[in-house]
């Protein structure tokens, strides 16, 4: 009797141009990939975080070269959902993740919310500069 094929832990793997007009399509593909998996209830949080992470790549990492690509992989590992994002743009300043301090609401800041949203919704995140690429891993605890 053939052994039962194990379920693939990879829900989605994509390589795409780093353009903000592509972000809605990425989020849609992501929601479709999560549907029916045990990570489906995380859909709203994943969309908020992924939009910010992708837009950071488009607006900051590639600001020095104007155009580039990003690779995305979404996988289930044990009790968490993991999103890996790789780009080949400029490194994060000081090679470290921004703190994500919230602007005070009464200052009516029009920006500065991206990393705050990411940090509020993920359980852990890691950043590495490796071989001229930025590698960001975002983990979400499964409910």
């Amino acid at each position: 009797m053939p052994a039962k094929k194990p379920d693939s832990p990879i829900l989605l793997a994509l390589c795409l141009p780093a353009l903000n007009v592509a972000t809605p399509d990425v989020l849609r593909a992501c929601i479709n990939a999560l549907a029916g998996s045990k990570a489906a209830p995380l859909g709203d949080d994943v969309q908020i975080v992924l939009a910010e992470a992708v837009n950071n790549i488009v607006e900051h990492a590639y600001i020095c070269m104007g155009f580039g690509a990003l690779a995305l992989r979404i996988s289930l590992t044990g009790q968490s959902l993991k999103i890996d994002l790789i780009d080949w743009g400029c490194p994060l300043p000081n090679l470290s993740l921004p703190a994500g301090h919230a602007p005070e609401p009464e200052t009516l800041s029009e920006g500065g919310y991206g990393w705050l949203l990411i940090r509020s919704l993920v359980s852990t995140l890691e950043y590495q500069r490796l071989a001229d690429s930025n590698q960001l891993s975002l983990h979400f605890d499964l409910c």
């Binding site: 809605p24 989020l27 969309q47 908020i48 939009a51 910010e52 837009n55 009516l108 800041s109 029009e110 920006g111 500065g112 919310y113 991206g114 949203l117």
Partner: peptide, 16 residues
């Protein structure tokens, strides 16, 4: 059904 930090910034700008 969806807003990101850029959209939030645009709503804040609309008030300002």
């Amino acid at each position: 059904t969806f807003i990101d930090s850029s959209g939030l910034g645009a709503v804040v700008a609309s008030m300002k």
